[in-house]
Design a protein around this nucleic acid. Sequence first.
DNA 1: TATTTTTTTGCATTCGAAGTCATTGTTAAT
DNA 2: ATTAACAATGACTTCGAATGCAAAAAAATA
Lengths: 336, 336
Amino acid sequence: MSRKKRVTSYDVAREAGVSQSAVSRVFRPGFSASDKTREKVLEVAKRMGYKPNAIARMLITQQSGIIAVIVSSRANVNYPEVLSQLNKSISQRQKRVLLFTLDSSDDLDELLESIWTFQVDGVIALAAHFEERSLEQLAQHNIPVVLYNRNVPEANANSVCCSHERGIKQLIDILHEGNHRSYLIISGPEDSDVANERREIASQYLTQLGYSDTPIVYGDYSYESGREALARWLKNNNLPDAVICSNDIMAIGVIDELRENMKLSVPDDVSVVGFDGVSAASWYSYQITTIRQPLEQLTKAAVDILMERIENPDSPPETRVLVGKLIAGNSTKPRG
Amino acid sequence: MSRKKRVTSYDVAREAGVSQSAVSRVFRPGFSASDKTREKVLEVAKRMGYKPNAIARMLITQQSGIIAVIVSSRANVNYPEVLSQLNKSISQRQKRVLLFTLDSSDDLDELLESIWTFQVDGVIALAAHFEERSLEQLAQHNIPVVLYNRNVPEANANSVCCSHERGIKQLIDILHEGNHRSYLIISGPEDSDVANERREIASQYLTQLGYSDTPIVYGDYSYESGREALARWLKNNNLPDAVICSNDIMAIGVIDELRENMKLSVPDDVSVVGFDGVSAASWYSYQITTIRQPLEQLTKAAVDILMERIENPDSPPETRVLVGKLIAGNSTKPRG
DNA sequence: TATTTTTTTGCATTCGAAGTCATTGTTAAT
DNA sequence: ATTAACAATGACTTCGAATGCAAAAAAATA
């Protein structure tokens, strides 16, 4: 009931015997005020429990200090972790993260409108599927965007990503040099850009090495889908020498399916590789050969690029590609 | 350069030949305007690309439509998942999530000030350590709070949590009835309230069953810490019949340590139980006996309670305790 | 048709801090 | 002492939408 009325800069000004402008200046870094008033104002402000109202400040400065982070609901398993890191990194720069989830791609326009109404300083999109049109929409409003793990080379967009090409080729090289002669690709869902990219790279590189028409089955990045995808394939087909999975979690599913239901050994009977380098990949029971995404560097790069565009809106678009680290595990071994 | 100027309600008003108030009312649900003006305004607004400025609206209405979510950096492994769910649930109610991370407990005051500055409608705190004093601070500002998995019975706070007591007693009952006669507790970090609660419950219940002074070793919730904690213990002590871990991830670490370095079998040589019911707990290689937290129901309850307090600030404080589901896995089996 | 009731409407003000501009006070230079 | 240069200050306006109030218009009643 007795909703305590907010203490405003006017209240402090009156109490301290100065003008409202003076109070404002004291709380604005880089604005001048004599030591005497500064001291006085800070003292009174503290006593009265005054804090500048962020909303009012946003309105007048046209700067919210808010970064919108869009996470697609079809998000990769390790995005939650990325999100925490992003938040930490952004908080350290005195900005805040406003979260948005993107369910289906068709309400993206609406989402962007909504983002715009918050006057956010910038946007980081985690693997959401962005049309070029949407990017332009944000560009029109002068809102810088950084795409995370979403390379849109044709568009003039800022982006950071882990080099899927480099990583997958490294994994395949290991298998190829280890005399694996037949392959199966277990891809992530078809509506995931990352999954599509990883699958295409693998498929093409295998063709280049002389294994054309490598079979592909689809999962949804989950453990169960990895198991099912493999089981489905083996029902009517022979065991390949190696299984290339679009992520670690499906690779773990594949390994468990091979061990439990097929009574086969990994890596003795078949090699399995994953991608991402999630922590479970290194657990004793799996020890997957995989590519570890440099998550920290990726998020750092994303935030760095974004902040640069916020401070200097005319910086040209930049794409930063980081190379993941090959983890040579025990889920692969040379054949014959 | 040519920073497109924002379209304001005045612009729309002028173009549509009505007053600014009329435009405002058209965009405010539940306010009256004749069909004629409504139609006209909407048409013009659409044509000009007008959307009400959320910041200005917040300032005048004193309502931000923003929910602050505080995640402690010492967060339990499955909080990222909780966070996604919370965000989804809150978005569905047309509110937004503003993320805050809490590093050390001493800057909580500052964090709360900062939260207050944003005029958030409510706060959800994920397992952050909250003093009663902090809760009062928010209460003074009339900001409702819901604590997630943080039961503060003495304080007049809203909270939701999974019944650790019920869950842990169930797990211990299984072990006790399965003739396990010596125990080891592997607890989460001492600065985690949840870990402390789980440990205390286990310890006291074991005492009650006649196993006083059950040894306790500490980890930090991580896989490695589970392995290390067990290894450290076994260096100078005998193998217990059962190991009770504060979470699944440490239980997985314990199992791997037993298998890899001790060459022991789980559950033949020793039983292991966890807590949380994370997805990895059910993987073939582990199949941990554990308690699955009803995450979805918990987040739903948290959001429900919060929304209720926002709409009706005088609702009395409420604590909702949900019971987790026992998952009888293969990491335990009766002795002798 | 006259009158009452109800619905629409616009004017003016409000939210709270920031910034513009002109003025005053202070210090440095001549 | 006198001017120039500069720092500090307050009065006033701004950001953009919401809303109390009174006037106007429309609808309902007599």
